[in-house]
Amino acid sequence: MTSLASQPAGRSRARRAAAQEGGAVRSGMTLAAYLFLSPYLALFIAFMLMPTLAAVGISFMRWDILGTPEFIGFDNYRQIFADPLFLTAIKNTFYFVFLTAIPMVVLGLALAMLLDQKLKGTAFVRTVVFLPYVVMVSTVGILWGWLFDKGTGLVNYYLTTIGIEPIAWLKDPHWSMPALAITTIWWTVNTNMIIFLAALQDIPEELHDAATLDGAGPWQRFVYITLPLLRPAMALVTALTIINGWRVFGQAYVMTQGGPEASTFVIVQYIYLTAFQNFEMGPAAAAGVVLLLITLVFSLAQMKLMKAI
C-alpha cells in the first residue's frame, strides 16, 4: 500500500527533479546560445541597430555635424520629397532593381544548374565564376568603364563585328543604367549561384531517380522536383537581390557619378552627397529612412508572394 501510494509521489518527485534538471539544462543551453550569439549581437547592436535608430532620430533634426541638432518635425521629409533630384533617384533605383532582379535570379539558377553537373573541371569553373565577387567595386567600375568605352571598348568591338553601331554606354542617358545593370550582374550573380548550388546539392538524388523511373523527363523533373524544393533558396535569393538592388551605390559612383543627365543617380548617392558634401544630416537621414521603408515593403511583398506560390 505504502509502496503503491508512495510510487506516484515518488514519480512526481522524480518528474519534478527531472523537470528541474531539464530546466537547468535548458537555461544553460539558452545561456550558451546567447553567449554564442553575443559577439554578433554586440556588433549588430553597435553598428546596425543603434545607427539605424540614431538615423531615424536625426531625420527629424536640422544638423550640419558641427552644430547642435535642432528638432524640426517632418520638415526634412517634406524637403526631400519636394526635391526633384530625390524623386529622380527613387525612379532610377527602381529601374536598376527592375533591370537586375530577374536576370540575377534566373542567371544565378542557370549557372548553379550548369555547375551542379558532375563533370571534370567543374570546381575550377565554379571558382572562376565566383572570382568577380572578390574584386573591389572601384576596380570593377574602372574595368567596365574601359570595356564600355565607345571608341576603344571591347563591348563595342564585338558589337560592331555583328553589325551593331558602337554605343556610348556610359555617356548616353538611355544606355547608362543598362550598362550599370550588366556590370552588376557580372559582378554579383555568383553569390546567387552559390546559394542555388548549395540548395541544389541538398535535393536528394532518390527523388530524381524515382521520377526518372516513373518516366519524368528533365523538364518535368526540373518543374516538379527541383523548383519546388528550391523555393526557400529562391525566396532568399530574390529578397537579397532586391534589397541589394535598392542599395546600389559603388558602381554608379565610380562609373558615371550619377550621370549623364542624372540618369544613374541613385538613392544611396543622394544620401551620401547630402550628408557628406552638403553636410545636411537631417535630409540625408530622412532619405535613409525612406530607403529602409522601401526595402522593407519590397521584402514583405516578396515574402508574401513566395508564400502564395
Binding site: 557619378q257 550619377g258 543627365e261 552627397l273 558634401q277
Partner: peptide
C-alpha cells in the same frame, strides 16, 4: 561651392550642361 560645383552630383549646372551638349 561644393554643392553648386560638385564633381559627382547631378547638380543643376552639370545636368543642364550635359543636356545642352547631348542635344536633349
Amino acid at each position: 561651392y561644393l554643392s553648386v560645383f560638385s564633381f559627382d552630383k547631378p547638380t543643376p549646372l552639370v545636368t543642364n550642361l550635359q543636356a545642352a551638349l547631348s542635344g536633349s
